[in-house]
């Protein structure tokens, strides 16, 4: 079995992993970080979005061996202690979630989407979140949350 080393939410982790292990399974099963969800498992719904080297990716469509040497951030890595990340706080303040299943993926996508763009428009947000599906269809407040989060992050 190959061995991988990566930085996961700021912490160095390493270990053996089967080549066929998907990144999302590695995160949930091996690392016991269950904030990253599995929805469609086919790269469509976006509930498994994490950051690899700062870019949002769908972790159901990557192999764990592909992140050897990379920095991976999951929803658990956003907050600083008890203090929520500005995007998480914006989702809370703007009721940007209903059942909450899509939320970790929405937040991770949003953080990547608004980076460097504090005044992102509604159209840009809606287009940018094309790969994140909310089955409660709560998009209105998600867009409001992302706009507020972008301002709070200051780009």
């Amino acid at each position: 079995m190959p061995s991988i080393s990566l930085t996961l939410n700021g912490r160095s982790v390493s270990g053996e992993v089967e080549t066929k292990t998907l990144l999302v399974d590695y995160i949930r099963e091996n690392q016991k970080l269950t904030g990253t969800h599995v929805g469609c498992d086919t790269s469509q719904c976006g509930s498994c979005v994490v950051h690899v080297d700062g870019k949002s990716v769908k972790s159901c469509t990557m192999l764990a061996v592909q992140v050897d040497g990379s920095e991976v951030t999951t929803i658990e890595g956003l907050a600083t202690g008890e203090e929520l990340h500005p995007m998480q706080e914006a989702f809370r303040q703007n009721h940007g979630l209903q059942c909450g299943f899509c939320t970790p993926g929405m937040v991770m996508s949003a953080v990547d989407l608004v980076a460097g763009n504090p005044d992102i428009s509604e159209t840009e947000i809606r287009e940018g979140l094309e790969g994140n599906i909310c089955r409660c269809t709560g998009y209105h407040n998600i867009v409001k949350s992302v706009q507020a989060g972008a301002k709070a992050m200051g780009g």
Binding site: G46, K55, S56, V57, K58, S109, D112, E130, G131, N132
Partner: peptide
């Protein structure tokens, strides 16, 4: 192609 996260890969 796909969505933003797909285009990143």
């Amino acid at each position: 192609i796909g969505s933003r996260q797909v285009q990143n890969r």
